[in-house]
Design a protein around this nucleic acid. Structure first.
Lengths: 189, 189
DNA sequence: GTCTATAACACGATAGAC
DNA sequence: GTCTATCGTGTTATAGAC
C-alpha cells in the first residue's frame, strides 16, 4: 500500500514550499510550477490545498502521539523517558524536516482537523509535563518550575527542523546524545 | 516625537493579527475591521501592508542589536553575559509579545529590508556564539558543542512570545531567574 | 494525467467626495 | 480622517478536450 506515488510527490513538494514561505503564501501555481505541471493538473491527485496541509500535519502529529504512548508505557526511569522524547523528536524531524515546519507554523490554517490537532498536541504536552513532575517527585530532576523545564525542552525540540538540515554531518545518534547532554544532564541532580 | 498615535495603533493591531494567522493570511480588510474602519482608510496612515511588517520587525531587530552590543561591551563574565541575554529577550518580548511573533515567523516576507534583517540576525548569532566559546575557553561553561548550546538557548528564548502571555502571574524578574537556572546553571561547571 | 479556458471571488491599492 | 466605488490582478477550483 502507499503506492500513490504522485500524490506523495505533491505533498512532499508542498511541504518544502510551505517551509520556505508558509501555507498562505504558497499558491497552487507555485506548487504546480515546482512539480513541472499546470495548477489544474494537481486536482487529479488531491482534492484541495487544505487536504495537502491536513495530510502533512495530521500524519506527523499522530506519529508523535504513538511515540509518546510507547514511552509512557515503557518502564524506563523518568530521565530515560526524557531522553527517549529527545530521540523521538530527532527521528521524526530527520525523516520529515519540511513537514515539521508546517506542523509548527501552519497548524492554525487547518480547518476541519484543527480541533483534532489541538487535542493531540494538548495530550502530548500533558504527558510530557507528567514525566517531568514524576521525575521531580522521585528526585531524578532538580525541583525547578516543571512548566519552565517543559517549555525550554519542547521549544528546542520543536525547532529542530531549522537546525538538522544545516548539520547533516552530525548523525541522529550523536545529535540525540549531545542534545540530551545539554537539555537533560543540566537538570539532573 | 512618536506622536503619530493612529499609525502606531494600526501597527499594534496588525502585529496582533499577524501573530494569530501570519502576515500572508491577514488581509487589509481584516486589519481595517479590527480597527473599526474601512480598508481604504488605512492608507491615510500607512503606505502599504509591507510597510507595516517592516515597522514591526526592524524596530525589534534593532532593539536586539543594541542590547547585544551593550552586553558585549560590558565587562561581565561570560556566564553573566548569557544571563543578561536571557533578561534581554524577556524584556523585549514582554514589551512586544505580538511583534515577536512576526519577527520569528514572518521575516521572510520582508521585501526591501530582508537583507538588512538577515545581516542583523547573523551578527546577533555570531556574538552569541562567541560568548559561549569564550565561556568554554575560560572554563565557565562545560565543553559541549557550542552550536548546540546556542541553538538550544536561542530557540527557547525566541519562543518566549508563545509562553509569556500565558504566565502573566510570573514577573519578568522571576522568569529571568528561573529560566536562567534551567538554561545556564545546567551548563555551568 | 495533463492541458486550455474560465468561473467566481478575494486581494492590495487608488481616486475622489465629504 | 473616513467613506464609497472601483481598478487591475491573483486566488482556488472546475469543465471539458486530448
Amino acid at each position: 500500500m502507499t503506492q500513490e506515488t504522485r500524490k506523495n510527490e505533491i505533498i512532499n513538494t508542498a511541504a518544502k514550499l510551505f517551509k520556505e514561505k508558509g501555507y498562505s503564501a504558497v499558491t497552487m501555481r507555485d506548487l504546480a510550477t515546482a512539480m513541472g505541471i499546470k495548477a489544474a493538473s494537481l486536482y487529479n491527485h488531491i482534492t484541495s490545498k487544505q487536504d495537502i496541509l491536513k495530510a502533512i500535519i495530521i500524519t506527523i502529529a499522530e506519529e508523535f502521539t504513538a511515540g509518546m504512548h510507547a514511552i509512557m508505557n515503557s518502564d524506563a526511569s523518568n530521565i530515560e523517558k526524557l531522553k527517549k522524547i529527545v530521540a523521538l523528536h530527532i527521528n521524526i524531524t530527520s525523516n520529515n524536516t519540511n513537514g515539521m515546519a508546517s506542523l509548527n507554523n501552519d497548524w492554525m490554517h487547518l480547518e476541519d482537523q484543527l480541533d483534532y490537532y489541538l487535542q493531540l498536541r494538548n495530550e502530548y504536552e500533558t504527558n510530557f509535563l507528567s514525566i517531568i513532575q514524576r521525575g521531580i517527585s522521585s528526585l531524578e530532576i532538580k525541583a525547578n518550575n516543571p512548566e519552565i523545564i517543559m517549555f525550554s525542552m519542547l521549544t528546542t525540540l520543536r525547532s529542530l527542523y531549522l537546525w538538522i538540515p544545516k548539520k547533516e554531518d552530525l548523525s541522529a545518534n550523536d545529535l540525540a546524545h549531545s542534545l540530551s547532554e545539554v537539555l537533560i544532564e543540566g537538570i539532573n541532580i
